[in-house]
């Protein structure tokens, strides 16, 4: 049997110390890791259970932002009155993900770190550079309907499956980390995730044993926030494409806009190109289309997922139109 040890450290410092053991892995809700262990994809020899650490609170910050503890359950964050009123895009993204049962178990930090849903990642008989570096990418010439259209590489075309992280990306969230040497650092969410390059098994900039302690949301940006998720069924399904948008329109002109996509890349995809094409422009469909074209300028389909490029364009246009209309 693949045996593993388990411990439940008392505090965050003990947790990172425990995680310094070789083969150690943090576990919180276990909604992803336990499946991966059963399927022989992850094989930690030591589990450090951080789900009961005192990191479940959502706190006000002096600047008007919020600090969300890494152990706060997805359902608690989604239901938090401050999140719902000041960061509706985040609340919408959270409730669009998974199922009620999973959201009750899944933590904020765990959600950020969930692994891809590429079917070849799950098939241990298939080559997958993410699961088994150097074994090749089976998706490139295989079944790739759900795969990336932006930022992919010859080594990996997987997507990041989180909805929550897309909303946090458009909100310019900062991720607070505690290292084994007890040093603390903050990383912008856009810098937190890596593109696959030739090391798709490295998904974030987390150092070994480093632990997410919280996510800091800056004060909410001006404008109307919207999350739109497009999927194959009405619930309990990952995004084919999703859009998180914040649009502030003054009369008929867009003063400021932020855009991030989900389901299109190895990481939540902030589109500065789309944002540039929107700022100061009239709030019309022509502007949205130009922004969509800018966002998708470098998009490449893999065959089965070619449709995602047009789907992302259309989803962005409609989301922007709705956000601008009511902002």
């Amino acid at each position: 049997m693949r045996s593993f040890t388990y411990e439940r450290p008392a505090d965050a410092r003990a947790a990172v110390a425990a995680a310094s053991r070789s083969g150690a892995k943090f576990i919180s809700g276990g909604t992803n890791l336990l499946d991966l262990m059963k399927l022989d994809i992850e094989h930690p020899s030591h589990l450090v259970d951080i789900s009961r650490l005192a990191l479940r609170d959502i706190d006000e910050l002096p600047d008007g932002g919020l600090r969300i503890g890494a152990q706060a359950a997805n359902s608690d964050v989604a239901a938090d009155a401050r999140v719902r009123t000041r960061y509706p895009v985040l609340s919408q993204a959270l409730v669009s993900g998974a199922s009620g049962q999973l959201r009750n178990k899944a933590s904020t930090g765990g959600n950020l770190l969930q692994r891809t849903r590429c079917p070849y990642f799950y098939d241990t008989a298939a080559g997958c550079n993410k699961r088994d570096p150097g074994s090749g990418c089976s998706a490139i010439d295989g079944s790739n309907r759900i795969h990336a259209i932006l930022g992919a590489s010859d080594a990996c075309i997987a997507t990041h499956p989180s909805d929550m992280a897309v909303a946090m990306t458009v909100l310019d969230a900062q991720i607070e980390l505690l290292d084994a040497d007890e040093s603390v650092r903050r990383v912008a969410i856009t810098d937190f995730y890596r593109l696959p390059g030739d090391t798709p098994h490295l998904e974030t900039v987390l150092r070994p044993a480093e632990m997410i302690t919280s996510v800091v949301l800056p004060p909410p940006p001006p404008g109307r926030q919207l999350y739109r998720k497009v999927r194959d069924r009405a619930s309990y399904e990952f995004a084919l494409v999703s859009v998180a948008a914040v649009v502030s329109a003054d009369q008929a002109t867009i003063a400021q806009a932020r855009v991030a996509f989900g389901g299109v890349a190895h990481k939540p995809w902030r589109s500065v190109e789309a944002e540039a094409a929107l700022t100061g422009r009239p709030a019309t469909m022509a502007t949205y289309r130009a922004a969509a074209d800018a966002a998708m300028r470098d998009a490449v389909g893999q065959g089965h997922n070619d449709f995602k490029i047009e789907l992302a364009r259309r989803t962005l246009c409609r989301t922007l139109a709705q956000a601008a209309q009511s902002s």
Binding site: R117, P119, D232, R233, A234, Y236, E237
Partner: peptide, 10 residues
Amino acid sequence: AQYLMPVHAD
């Protein structure tokens, strides 16, 4: 998770 069938919301 990948072979889809309707859920209640459908």
